[in-house]
Structure formats: structure tokens, C-alpha cells
């Protein structure tokens, strides 16, 4: 495992918060996924060892919680809310527009490895439906036209040199 020094620092800071060390499993999974982009088998074993647990104790979390993934995704992550309030305000059209604009299949990544588009369940912003999360940022009232604008922005940012991103 090749974790960044700041990730290791955060890991060591979070463990003592809990009276029982196993509680740190979820925070560690988040930290490792933020560092590595996904949870590899190696990461499962590393976290288990760090917490004195069996690998299955970590693996069963990775396979249960929807936010953990076992494979890398695109550099940009688009999550469109699929649940009722967003759907009746047109989130299926929004999602289709992102897929068309960015060339990504539903639940998959564009051929250039740049963008992953997926449907997720309720993002708890139903009053500004349809909503979309792009990486960590929530975007509200994203109709098909707004999805085109956001797609243009994502494409423009992909072309920009890395330091400007």
C-alpha cells in the first residue's frame, strides 16, 4: 500500500476517537478510497491489519455500502439522483443527457477514462430537483439544458493543463 503521508496522518488521528477500534473501519475506508480512488483487495487487507480485524470484516463493508467501489472510476464522477422527487422533475432526461454528452454508459465510464455517470438514490435535496453531484459538489435544478452546460464545463476542464484544474 502506497498511501500519501497526509492520509496516514488522518488515519492515525481518527482511530483514537472511538472507544472500540472496529468503529474506525468506515472512516478508514473513506480515507483510503479518497487516496487511491477505489478499495483494492490489498487495501482491504491493509485496513484489516491496521485495525486488528479479519479481511472479511472489511470486505463485507465494501460489498454492502453503495459508496465504496472495488474498481477505479473516471477522473470526474457524476451522480444523478434517481428517486421519486427528482424523477418526476425529469432526472432520467438529465442522466441521459450527461451520458450522451460525455459518451459514458449508465453506471460506467467514458472510453477516454475521464467521466463516470451513474444513478444514485435520494440525495436529500428534493426541493431543488433534479439534483446531481459532480465529485463532492451538489448541483441543483439540473435539467437537460443545464446538464449540457455542465458537460461543456467538464470537457473544458479536462483539456486544461493539470495545474489549472
Amino acid at each position: 500500500m502506497n498511501l500519501k503521508p497526509e492520509t496516514l496522518e488522518k488515519i492515525d488521528a481518527v482511530i483514537p476517537r472511538y472507544p472500540q477500534i472496529r468503529s474506525a473501519a468506515l472512516p478508514l475506508l473513506h480515507l483510503v478510497q479518497e487516496d487511491q480512488g477505489f478499495i483494492s483487495n490489498e487495501a482491504v487487507e491493509w485496513i484489516a491489519q491496521k485495525l486488528g480485524l479479519q479481511p472479511i470484516n472489511i470486505y463485507e463493508l465494501v460489498t454492502f455500502y453503495p459508496m465504496f467501489r472495488q474498481k477505479p472510476i473516471g477522473r470526474r464522477h457524476i451522480r444523478v439522483c434517481r428517486t421519486l422527487s427528482c424523477a418526476i422533475m425529469g432526472s432520467y432526461r438529465t442522466c441521459a443527457e450527461f451520458q450522451r454528452q460525455l459518451g459514458a454508459p449508465l453506471g460506467g465510464t467514458s472510453p477516454d477514462g475521464e467521466v463516470t455517470v451513474e444513478f444514485v438514490e435520494c440525495l436529500a435535496s428534493c426541493g431543488t430537483a433534479p439534483v446531481v453531484m459532480i465529485d463532492d459538489t451538489l448541483h441543483e435544478k439540473v435539467d437537460a439544458a443545464r446538464a449540457r452546460e455542465l458537460s461543456d464545463l467538464i470537457r473544458a476542464q479536462a483539456k486544461a493543463p493539470a495545474q489549472q484544474r
Binding site: R17, L26, H30, F64, Y65, P66, M67, E121
Partner: peptide, 12 residues
């Protein structure tokens, strides 16, 4: 009294 933030991971 200490307060800590604990993040879930997408399960209703």
C-alpha cells in the same frame, strides 16, 4: 464532552 463526525457510506 467530545463530539465527533462519523460519515456513512450511502445506505438508507
Amino acid at each position: 464532552c467530545e463530539i465527533y463526525v462519523h460519515r456513512g457510506a450511502g445506505a438508507y
